[in-house]
């Protein structure tokens, strides 16, 4: 019998420092995954945490992790060659197939860029399949922005709109929360939005996008919950009758606002 609770061992192949509190770990896990899916990362003795996949090549997956809890703090102290456990991938992932032939808006806040990175990479590789593409990315400070070394490459394929809440020396770009950039998006009709970020960012960005004319059925958000099992049994990620781990983590805004127990991420949207 296949034991879904049993992780397989995987080696840390490479560690990249992204920001002072975030690192990307390249882990030897030959997983086929859909952008937006997550894995359960085990650090033995410390527990498990759901982490979204931020990249991969069929032999390895990349996990971009901020140190916040037991598991994530411990993996930050680990070295190349150390072993962790992996289960997954789990979840539905972003509906990329729906975007093909249409405009795409990617809206990310802080660490929320990590699950969207595979989408961006997919777009860069298959640019002709998409019409206009805009990446809207906000972080608290310029030094907390993820994947800065990729921005040049990405900007060849899409319109990059960057913003920070608090500028630091040398920052010449926009200052303000993500919503203050929304009116710079040039395409509204025929656009699918993929969004991930802190609850408060998703809530206000959703509100502004709806005002600008983006239909809620075309906006997709990725929710964060405390998935313990990843397979819809333990109950921790349940919200309004759906399991974020197996029915999500990606939901259309249209669906999320109709959950019986309205998720915090969309509270106040269209109320």
């Amino acid at each position: 019998m296949n034991n879904l609770y049993l992780p397989f061992l995987a080696e840390i192949k490479e560690i990249r420092e992204e920001t002072p509190d975030t690192k990307t770990f390249v882990i030897s896990a030959p997983l086929k995954f859909k952008p937006g899916q997550f894995v359960e990362l085990s650090v033995f003795g410390y527990g498990e945490a759901p982490i979204s996949i931020s990249g991969g090549n069929g032999e390895c997956i990349e996990l971009t992790i901020r140190a916040v809890g037991n598991v994530t703090n411990k993996i930050h102290r680990m070295k190349v060659g150390d072993y962790v456990g992996i289960r997954g991938p789990f979840g539905n992932g972003w509906p990329i197939e729906k975007v093909e032939g249409k405009n795409l808006l990617i809206a990310a806040g802080g660490i929320g860029l990590a699950p969207l990175k595979p989408v961006i990479e997919h777009v860069c590789q298959n640019r002709d399949k998409f019409k206009e593409v805009t990446l809207l990315y906000g972080a608290r400070k310029p030094s907390l922005m993820l994947f800065k070394y990729k921005f040049d490459e990405w900007s060849k394929h899409m319109n990059l709109l960057l913003t920070v809440d608090e500028p630091e020396n040398g920052w010449k770009g926009h200052v303000g929360v993500v919503t203050t950039l929304c009116d710079k998006i040039k395409h509204v009709s025929d656009t699918i939005t993929l969004m991930c970020g802190p609850p408060i960012m998703m809530k206000y960005t959703s509100m502004v996008l709806i005002e600008l004319g983006f239909p809620p059925s075309e906006i997709y958000l990725s929710l964060e919950r405390n998935m313990k099992c990843g397979i819809g049994i333990c109950g921790h990620c349940a919200v309004g009758g759906v399991y974020v781990c197996k029915d999500g983590p990606v939901f259309s805004l249209n669906r999320a606002i109709r959950f019986i127990e309205k998720p915090h991420e969309v509270q106040g949207v269209l109320d």
Partner: peptide, 26 residues
């Protein structure tokens, strides 16, 4: 009711331990 929590319990230096699930309550 079938909710559960998952945790790791180890010996004092973490060299061995067990992953345990225990009933949880909403």
């Amino acid at each position: 009711c079938h909710c559960f929590d998952v945790k790791d319990v180890t010996n004092i230096d973490g060299s061995e331990g067990e992953r345990i699930r225990a009933w949880d309550s909403c």
